[in-house]
């Protein structure tokens, strides 16, 4: 019985592989374009961040954080931890990772927020994309790392794409949540005063959902950071590379140093992004 089952293997894997092959054959120009554009964006930002003298950039980060949060503690942490990163010699890799995270997050927002809005307005659409979102978050990263590698070649781009696939569900889900939990009373108040669909979206739904959407963005950043090591496996520059190298050469000290730099970047991004959300919550509480 089982013999019969195994001899008639359903060609699931081969079918998918053929599909990818077909894509490479027929969509090469399209994928090349994306690859070139994305790598230009990421590399451009990296170059810019590295062109600015490190100490000036640290100062700029500190000032920006202070303007946003008025917190001396946060500023002190940012300055000291970034100085540590420079001291350890991971400044360049940190900026590469930052650039990758920024572009991955930007892509997620540009795609995720509109999709989340559309899904909130059309329950059938949300029903339809939910399994896809679940799949994107649960399927092991390495599985789609291979086709992205085939489609986009080695380097930063497949890293960004894989990161986007992994992090995209967060902003979609949270945007959908934020928009669909707008109280019916507020929606009706706007309609009663003659609001159009567009005005309803921009004057009621988005402002109401903003804290939730920002939470989605923060989550997206964290998920992107958690992908740096995997992105390094397909050749993306950044803090993942020393980790991978340390793994290959069993270099404990290098592994720890790069790991600490990742954690520092994560904490800074988290604190900087999360606070406005909490402030907005307190205001509306």
């Amino acid at each position: 019985m089982t013999d019969w089952l195994t001899t008639h293997k359903i060609p699931l894997g081969p079918v998918l592989a053929t599909a990818i092959e077909w894509l490479t054959d027929h969509g090469q120009a399209f994928f090349d374009f994306i690859a070139i554009a994305l790598s230009a964006l990421v590399d451009g930002l990296t170059d810019l961040l590295l062109w600015i003298p490190a100490l000036i950039l640290v100062a700029a980060f500190a000032i920006g954080a202070y303007a946003l949060h008025r917190s001396i503690g946060l500023v002190a942490f940012i300055v000291l931890s970034l100085l540590l990163v420079i001291n350890l010699g991971y400044w360049e890799a940190t900026m590469q990772t930052l650039s990758l995270v920024i572009w991955a997050t930007a892509t997620c927002i540009v795609i995720g927020v509109p999709v989340g809005i559309a899904a909130a307005h059309r329950p059938w659409l949300y029903q339809a994309i939910r399994p896809v979102l679940d799949l994107m978050q649960t399927i092991p990263t390495f599985v789609y790392l291979i086709p992205t590698l085939v489609l986009f070649g080695l380097g930063t781009v497949p890293g960004v794409i894989s990161t986007v696939i992994f992090a995209l569900p967060a902003p979609i889900r949270l945007t959908q949540l934020g928009i669909s939990t707008v109280p019916e009373a507020l929606r009706e108040a706007a309609l009663a005063y003659g609001a159009t669909k567009r005005q309803l979206l921009f004057k009621v739904e988005l402002p109401h959902a903003m804290p939730t959407i920002l939470a989605g963005v923060t989550q997206c950043i964290m998920l992107s950071l958690s992908m740096v090591v995997i992105a390094a496996l397909v050749g993306a520059d950044g803090l993942g590379k020393p980790v991978v190298r340390a793994l290959n050469s069993v270099n404990i000290s290098m592994g720890f140093e790069a790991g600490i730099a990742i954690v520092i970047l994560a904490i800074i991004l988290d604190r900087v992004c999360k606070r406005p959300e909490r402030r907005a919550k307190r205001r509306s509480a």
Binding site: A185, A192, M210
Partner: peptide, 25 residues
């Protein structure tokens, strides 16, 4: 125009911006 039982005001706006809502629309 309409007045609601649960007020139907937009909590993230100031009093002034709430009153001006209809005009803004």
């Amino acid at each position: 125009s309409m007045v609601f039982q649960q007020f139907g005001l937009l909590p993230w706006r100031s009093v002034r911006d709430n009153v001006g809502f209809g005009l803004e629309i």
